[in-house]
Amino acid sequence: MALLRDLGLTLGRWTGRPAAKVQQDSGDPDVARVRQAAGTGDWGTVRTVLEARAESEDRTELLWAVGDTAGVERWIAPILEAETDALPRLVAGIRHISWGWEARTGAYAQDVSQEQFEVFHTRLRTAERWLYEVAEREPGWTSPWYGLQMTGRGLQVGQSTARRRFEATVRRDPHHLGAHQQQLQQVCEKWSGSHEEMHSFARTAAFGAPAGTLLGQLVAIAHIEQWLSLDAGADAAYMGRPEVTASLREAADHSYRHPDFVRRGGWLQVCNTFAMAFSLAGERDAARECFEATEGRVTEFPWYYIDADPAAAYRGQRSSTGR
C-alpha cells in the first residue's frame, strides 16, 4: 500500500499530541539509501548496502525496500546474466514477489480477474525459481526461505509445505518476526487454518521466545484476526472478553513492557499493533501507553484493517483513549 497523506497535522498541534503520520519504514537511513539506489538502478550501491548487513532479520527491511521499488525487474535482468553469485538472484526473487502481488492487488479473490491471477502466479513461480537457487548456493541464508513462505501462500502450496518453509526459516533465525508473521497468516482461518490453530501458534511462538523479543506481537495479531472475522457487535464483544484482555496484557508484559525489550527492527509496528488491540478491547490505559510510545508514527499494518487511511484509523482509536 502506498504511503498515504497525513490529514491530522492541525489536530495534532492543537491537542499537543504528535501528529499521526504514516511511517514508511523504521527510520534506518540505509533503507532510504537502498531504496533510492534501487530506483535509479544503482546496483553497486544496492549491493554494498545489502552486503553490509547480516543475512537475517536485520536485512529483511532493506531487501523489501529494493523489492518494492518499481523497475528493479528490468535492471536486475542483465546483472543476473553477468554475475553468478546469490545476491542478485535474491533481489530478483524478492522483487518478483512484490511485483506479483502488485498484479493481484489486495482485492478479494472474487474481485481479481483470471488474467490478474495468471500474471500473479507466473511472477511468483519466477520468484520461487530464483529463491530456490539462492537457498542452494547459500544454505545458511534466511531470506530465501522467508521469501518462499510468501510465494507459497500465494501459490497455495498447502499447510505441510508451508510449515516446512517456515521451519527452514527459523532454523536459521529462530526469532525472525517476519517469518512468524507469515506463518501466523498461513494458519489463520481465512487461509484454511482455524482460530484455534492460530492462537496456539501465536502463544507458543511468543512465550517460547525469550522475554523482550518482538514476537509478543503475534498474540495481538491473532486477536485482531479473530475480531476481523466476526460480524459487527460480536467483534466488540470478543475483544472485550476478560480472557482476551488478560492474554493481551500477558503478551505485552513478555514483549514491549519487558526490561529487555529493545526498540529496533519492527518495534514500532509491535507498539502500533498493541495500540490497536488494546483500544479495540476498551483497555484505555494500556492503549494510551502504546500510543505514547509511537509518538504519532503510524505503521500501515494493522491500521489498514480499519481504514484505507491508516493514519485516520490510528487517530480515531487514539481519540477513543482520551488522548
Rank of each mutant, 00 (worst) to 15 (best):
S200E: 14
W191E: 14
S194Q: 04
W191A: 12
I221V: 15
F201H: 10
L218N: 03
K190Q: 13
H195R: 13
A220F: 02
A209N: 07
H223S: 06
H199N: 05
F207N: 00
G212I: 03
A205E: 01
K190C: 11
W191Q: 15
V219Q: 07
G212S: 04
A202P: 03
S194T: 12
G193Y: 03
A205Y: 03
H195A: 14
V219K: 04
L215H: 05
G193A: 05
L214M: 13
G208S: 10
A209E: 06
E197I: 00
G212Q: 06
I221W: 10
V219M: 01
H223F: 14
F207C: 03
L218S: 06
H195M: 10
W191C: 07
L218R: 04
V219D: 05
E196A: 15
M198N: 10
A202F: 00
S200Y: 08
E196T: 12
A211M: 04
F207P: 02
A220D: 04
M198S: 13
H199C: 03
F207K: 07
F201R: 00
G193V: 02
H199W: 09
A209T: 04
M198E: 14
L214W: 12
K190T: 13
A206I: 07
G193N: 06
S200Q: 11
H223Q: 10
W191I: 09
F201T: 05
H199F: 12
V219S: 00
Q217R: 14
A222F: 08
I221H: 09
H199T: 08
I221Y: 10
I221M: 11
G193R: 01
W191N: 15
T213S: 15
S194D: 02
S200G: 13
K190R: 15
A222H: 07
H195E: 10
S194V: 06
T213N: 11
G193Q: 03
G212E: 02
A209C: 10
G208E: 10
F201M: 01
K190F: 14
F201W: 04
G216R: 05
A220N: 06
M198G: 05
F207S: 01
A211H: 08
P210C: 01
Q217G: 11
L218C: 07
P210M: 01
E196G: 09
A206H: 02
A202R: 00
L218K: 03
R203S: 11
E197A: 12
K190I: 13
Q217H: 10
